[in-house]
Design a protein around this nucleic acid. Structure first.
Lengths: 102, 102
DNA sequence: CGCGACGGTAAGTCGTAACTTACTGTTCGT
DNA sequence: ACGAACAGTAAGTTACGACTTACCGTCGCG
């Protein structure tokens, strides 16, 4: 989801990799909440983690981010493209009224 | 929000403008639900409406769609850009260990 | 006019996402 | 080897978004 906390986590991770505790300290939610968010972010391929000692450092996964960005982009572009063709179709119909259905 | 019904409505409107009832007939939800979705879509500037007789025809607002698309794009680009600079910063630190803080 | 179609609004229900507290497991330090 | 720090998991609560039913206003048509 595109909720506030999720985005905040991504922004923090974009600046620099971070362990869970440090991340939670900067946010208005508890540490387990951050853990859960990180879980779904990892499942979505947006972040990756690396265990170092007793800490778990999370970092942004640029490939995943790029993939999601592209998907989003495709959706909006398709919407705009369909709109374009629809407008063009209407214009044609206006030019050739006999082409109308029914 | 990016929920299923919302996206479905946008896709339908991208193909061609539509009154509320027709829209609701194509979707698995009731008409008032569609009305509520259209309300927030209008407030977001993604659609515009025009009253014609007793009907209310909604159409896609390409400017609004473009604006949202750009915003989204900016967010993801910023994330990726920050990541880039962070990586570069780390590389510098690795090259000049004496630059490390503490 | 008054009746029927169309659509927005109010009020209430329901499901689920987000969060909390409490617990368990792993790893490092001494 | 024991204790402390750090993090994931379970269970439960809470808040919110999507949906429904019911109602009201508006326009067109006979």
């Amino acid at each position: 989801m595109g909720d506030r906390t999720r985005r905040a986590i991504l922004e923090r991770l974009a600046v620099h990799p971070c362990p869970v505790g440090e991340l939670a300290a900067q946010l208005p939610v508890s540490r387990p909440a951050v853990s859960q968010h990180l879980k779904v972010l990892k499942e979505s391929g947006l972040v990756s983690d690396e265990t170092v000692g007793t800490r778990r450092v999370y970092r942004l996964n640029p490939a995943g981010v790029q993939a999601l960005r592209d998907q989003l982009d495709m959706f909006w572009n398709r919407a705009l493209a369909n709109y374009e063709t629809a407008v063009r179709g209407d214009a044609e119909a206006a030019d050739n009224p006999e082409t109308e259905e029914k």
